[in-house]
Write a protein that binds this DNA or RNA. Structure first.
Length: 418
DNA sequence: TCTGGGGTCCTAGGACCC
DNA sequence: TCTGGGGTCCTAGGACCC
């Protein structure tokens, strides 16, 4: 039996763990730069705050409706996520972490049914971390997703756990699931299917294979089989290496000065390189982009981007930044107010099995230096060792006006009980 | 004034190979 | 009249996920 464990309103629930006074309060959590709403408690959903709502447009409603607003606190969410995942692995060795707040699990029938095991799991997670979860059980991943939705939607009746284990329950569940709520059906396919009078998951699985294959590719076909109870999606036992690594940010205002942009891009380059070294890989291509405000009244969407090819694989912050700066210099146009920029590393390969270059003495990886820097920065927190191009005093801060304490990862933020 | 960030997979078509 | 067959690699764009 495959289970999908999903933390309910994860970010909002994390904020609540250390603030029991907010138990029944509506809560929203904002994206980076306090831009838009990316998580809502049930109460906030009931008050009609949509996902993705721009914060500045909803300030008044937050205020009048008594909605508590938080900036994203990824130190907290990441740590809470770890705790939940660790608990899961106490119950079963087969855990596939799917996202920060979701995991697939495989449950073997033991003395207890899978359902009973799931209920114990749910109880334990709540007790040990304070995070409420829902669990859906079914023969396939896609059906486990459906079961999970039912478990969550009818929590009072299901107690947060729902099992699809008979053809009858499967059909009932599929009839209940609106087409746009199916995992793997986005708004585009949903619109096309709706136009074809395909309104539910049940309608979808009754479409002919050929039509699905032709219009939705093998991805759609796999989904159909999964919903019919035939498991075709692979089980990812280990987290695969990233195939691309990006650091991109919107700026609080806009930037026009070349020097400012250079400095910010260097920071993105260094951040990407660090992530790359963390997975013990090197990259071959670097994409650099700068863009204006896509919501502005400016001439319109301006996206300047270029992809550079390195002469050898590297994970050196120095080399990567050097090429990022080269790309930036090519792109920069002084007449544009830049709102967002980023660096994307591609052509990523593991360090084992590195391709040597016959025409270079030694690929520049600066590995010992990089490792020393990584160790220092890990040990002392906040990048203490930076590149010369990065301004040492200026630390570009995101707009985070409503950040909660790092309750679980920062010693000075730990709650004091008296 | 203010609108996130980071990913994956698939397909079609062009260019090329023997 | 009739013009092969079987591949690979790369890129851009589309669609999706959390």
């Amino acid at each position: 039996m495959i289970g999908l464990v999903d933390c309910n309103n994860f970010y909002a629930s994390c904020e609540r763990v250390f603030r029991p006074d907010l138990q029944d309060c509506p809560i929203v959590v904002l994206s980076n730069n306090d831009g838009c709403v990316i998580a809502r408690s049930n109460e906030a959903k009931a008050l009609g705050i949509p996902m993705g709502a721009p914060a500045f447009q909803y300030e008044k409603q937050f205020d009048t409706l008594g909605i508590r607003v938080f900036s994203s606190n990824y130190a907290l969410y990441g740590d809470m996520s770890h705790r939940v995942m660790r608990i899961l692995s106490r119950f079963t060795p087969e855990v596939e972490v799917y996202s920060i707040d979701e995991a697939f699990i495989k449950l073997q029938p033991k003395d207890e049914t899978a359902e009973t095991q799931a209920r114990t799991m749910r109880h334990t997670i709540k007790k040990w971390t304070g995070i409420p979860v829902s669990i859906g059980l079914a023969p396939t991943k896609a059906l486990a997703k459906v079961a999970n939705k039912i478990a969550k939607k009818f929590a009072e009746k299901t107690g947060g756990v729902y099992v699809i284990d008979t053809p009858l329950k499967r059909e009932k569940a599929l009839r209940w699931t609106a087409i746009e709520d199916v995992w793997g059906i986005g708004y585009r396919h949903a619109a096309r299917l709706r136009a074809k009078k395909i309104n539910t998951a049940f309608d979808f699985v009754n479409l002919p294979d050929e039509w699905v294959r032709k219009n939705m590719s093998v991805v759609g076909l796999r989904l159909k089989k999964e919903l019919q109870g035939q498991a075709v999606l692979p089980w990812e036992a280990i987290v695969p290496d990233k195939k691309s690594i990006a650091t991109t940010r919107s700026f609080e205002g806009t930037l026009t000065a070349f020097g400012d942009l250079k400095e910010r891009m260097a920071t993105f380059a260094v951040s990407c390189a660090e992530k790359l070294r963390r997975q013990k890989s090197s990259c071959r291509y670097i994409h650099v982009f700068i863009r204006n405000n896509r919501y502005g009244k400016d001439p319109q969407n301006i996206y300047l981007g270029t992809t550079l090819c390195l002469p050898f694989e590297t994970s050196s912050s120095l080399v990567i930044n050097q090429y990022v700066q080269k790309g930036l210099a090519q792109l920069f146009d002084p007449n544009i107010a830049y709102k967002k920029a980023g660096v994307v590393l591609m052509g990523i390969l593991p360090d084992t099995g590195r391709q040597l270059n016959a025409f270079e003495n030694e690929p520049a990886t600066h590995l010992p230096l990089m490792q020393a820097i990584d160790r220092l920065n890990r040990k002392y927190g906040e990048p203490k060792v930076k590149l010369g191009i990065q301004d040492l005093r200026r630390t570009w801060k995101m707009k985070q006006e409503r950040l909660s304490p790092k309750y679980t990862t920062q010693i000075s933020d730990i709650l004091k009980v008296s």
